[in-house]
């Protein structure tokens, strides 16, 4: 029994029944398939997280995001007072996470590929773009450049899904994706 020493002293030479062997082989092969699935997706799949990353002082990132916002601001998002920014299609865009907002609101064009620069001014935050459900961790001091192509138009919410203190649940943001004609 499992609570007693093995009955045969040389237990490592006992034969293994066929059923067990077959299952081990199946389980092993399944592991190999799952392993190569991830590698294959890097080669053929279109959803892979960028590994383009830079060290950056948080205040430098904040000032870059502010400069970016100033350049391309087209108005304010509703009554919120948050700047609405419409960068040129296919350009570099900045999104800052800080206590407790995602700033600014971006207006992107559907089908265009953007380089999204992402970082935090203070603590760790979690970028959670909904309802597409894309979730990326955001660190202070690290600039993460995602190459991203919005393929659906509409208004998308950004939630913070990394706990960041008392106002964590108020930390939201927004990305608007417009069709080329409307975006003009």
């Amino acid at each position: 029994m499992a609570i007693q020493p093995p009955e045969t002293r040389i237990w490592w030479n006992e034969p293994v029944a066929r059923g067990e062997l077959v299952w081990i082989v199946i389980a092993f092969l399944w592991g190999v398939i799952m392993f190569f699935m991830m590698i294959w997706w890097h080669l053929e799949g279109r959803q892979n997280l960028s590994t383009e990353v830079y060290r950056i002082a948080p205040d430098v990132f904040v000032s870059r995001t502010e400069a970016f916002t100033e350049t391309y601001q087209v108005g304010e998002e509703g009554e919120s007072g948050v700047p609405l920014v419409r960068p040129p299609p296919g350009s570099d865009v900045y999104l800052l996470g800080r206590l407790w907002e995602w700033w600014p609101v971006l207006e992107l064009e559907r089908g265009q590929t953007y380089r999204l620069h992402l970082s935090s001014a203070d603590w760790q935050h979690g970028l959670s773009l909904q309802p597409v459900n894309i979730n990326v961790q955001v660190h202070p001091g690290i600039e993460h450049v995602l190459t991203i192509t919005p393929t659906t138009s509409g208004v998308f919410g950004i939630v913070c899904n990394e706990f960041c203190g008392a106002g964590h649940h108020q930390m939201t943001g927004r990305i608007r994706v417009v069709d080329a004609a409307a975006g003009g």
């Binding site: 919120s80 007072g81 948050v82 939630v159 964590h168 108020q170 939201t172």
Partner: peptide, 13 residues
Amino acid sequence: HWDITFSDATLAF
């Protein structure tokens, strides 16, 4: 997350 209705958030979702 305390409040999935985001009642206190500037940008509702």
